[in-house]
Amino acid sequence: MPLLLFGLLLSMSDPLYRYAAARTPAFAFPACQKAWAHRGYAAAGGENSLAGIAEAFRRGAAGVEIDVLFDPELDDFVVSHDRPYTLFDGQPLRLESVLSRFPRSGLFWLDAKDLRKLSPWTAHQATHRLSALLERYGLTERAFVESSQPLYLSWLADQGVHTSYAISPNDRKYSASLYRLHAAVMKLAYAFVGADAISMTAARYTPVTAATFDEAAILLSTVNDAGMLRYLSARPEVKVVLTDEDHYAVTACADRPRR
């Protein structure tokens, strides 16, 4: 019986996915300026640093992606890609310090690196803390949280937080039938979350994957070639492309001024 139910759900994955994508709430992705800073502008102060974030916004980036890790003992998120935490002046950088510093500077992509590894109780604590921080600094409508854990993302979505479901499709490695099965599972998870977008590495965004997930807003990382950035930005379904370089002037709207 469980296998029969699962098979039925898989058979419905495409219409459920399309229905969820059509109901996605509006989010302030800039229509023209899609090149965002990957972990800030790292050449100024290092990755995930206050200086790097400030410099990215100063150079005109519409948004900045940063990595965050939840620390249950602090009941707070730390801005760092890994543990042990990256330290600045001997101290970990808390997410609250970032959000309070840049409440009106632009948009944020928060990559919740360890959300999928948390226990349900700790994840409940983490999602409520993150929702509270975004609300406190007026960023609920100008930030989204990325994770590959659909259940915990759904908890954030239920609190009004914008979310992106991180996926890892690979049509070049797997057979067509296995790829379709994997895609069906990912579509079901996206529909369950009620996510605003789907995110993946740019290398996985092949023509096959683009056609498979053609209804959702797509967020990509990380592209440092200006020509490829222009190509991807021109695709209407692609809303953000992260870059390590100062390619923030790349625009999808050549006939319109940059934001």
Rank of each mutant, 00 (worst) to 15 (best):
M1E: 14
L3K: 12
L4T: 13
L4K: 11
L4R: 11
G7R: 03
G7S: 10
L10P: 07
L10Q: 11
S11F: 09
D14L: 14
D14R: 12
Y19C: 14
T24E: 12
A28D: 13
R39G: 02
A42E: 12
N48G: 08
S49E: 09
S49V: 08
A51R: 14
A56F: 02
R59L: 15
R59Y: 07
G60Q: 07
G60R: 05
G63N: 10
L69C: 06
L69Q: 08
F70W: 11
P72I: 08
E73A: 15
L74E: 15
D75I: 03
D75T: 12
D76T: 09
R83Y: 07
Q91R: 15
Q91T: 11
L95N: 01
S100H: 09
F102W: 07
L107N: 01
A112P: 03
K113W: 02
L115Y: 03
S119P: 05
W121A: 15
W121Q: 14
T122K: 02
H124Q: 14
Q125C: 05
Q125S: 13
T127Q: 04
L130C: 10
A132R: 14
L133W: 01
L134C: 08
R136K: 15
L139G: 00
R142T: 09
R142P: 04
A143Y: 00
V145N: 00
E146R: 05
S147P: 09
Q149Y: 06
A157P: 01
V161A: 03
V161G: 04
S168N: 12
R172T: 08
S175M: 03
S177W: 13
A183T: 00
V185Q: 10
K187C: 09
K187W: 06
Y190L: 03
A191R: 02
A191E: 01
G194N: 05
A195Q: 01
A195D: 00
T201A: 14
A203E: 15
R204Y: 07
Y205G: 02
T209N: 14
T209K: 04
A210T: 00
A217W: 05
A226R: 15
A226K: 11
G227D: 15
M228N: 08
S233Y: 04
R235V: 11
V240Q: 06
V240T: 07
L242M: 15
E245W: 05
E245L: 15
D246P: 06
D246E: 13
V250P: 03
A252H: 01
D255K: 10
R258H: 12
R258A: 15
R259T: 13
